[in-house]
């Protein structure tokens, strides 16, 4: 069975990535944000109005809450349940890949 791929839209920065919902959980705090799976550009939420900045010295995107890498073990792509919890379900698209 294939899992759904949850995304907001194609990335306006790199043109090839998908802006997907990334979850980071540390100290019982769940942070949700939008992360391009190609160029790693970040936005605070699916409206994609506000970028999350990262410096050129950082080679991995980091969580704005705990500062850990968003490719770390405490982080993962959001499930549908988590997207609902964040109140973003009506702002994402779901594709079977």
């Amino acid at each position: 069975m294939t899992s759904p791929l949850i995304y907001v839209e194609s990335c306006p920065i790199c043109g090839d990535g998908l802006c997907r919902i990334r979850i980071c959980v540390t100290n019982q705090r769940l942070t949700g944000l939008v992360l391009c799976d190609e160029c790693e550009a970040m936005w605070t939420d699916p409206s994609m109005q506000e970028r999350i900045e990262s410096s050129s010295s950082e080679t991995e995107p980091s969580c704005p809450t705990c500062n850990q890498s968003l490719w770390g073990e405490q982080s993962h792509w959001a499930s549908i349940g988590e997207v609902c919890l964040l109140g973003w379900f009506d702002r994402v698209r779901i594709a079977k890949v």
Partner: peptide, 25 residues
Amino acid sequence: GNVAEKTSEKKSEVAQATTTKTANR
């Protein structure tokens, strides 16, 4: 906003396991 805070006493295994950025990488 984009942060959901848990008030449960139960700790996330992931949060416990991962403590430093270096460890993640």
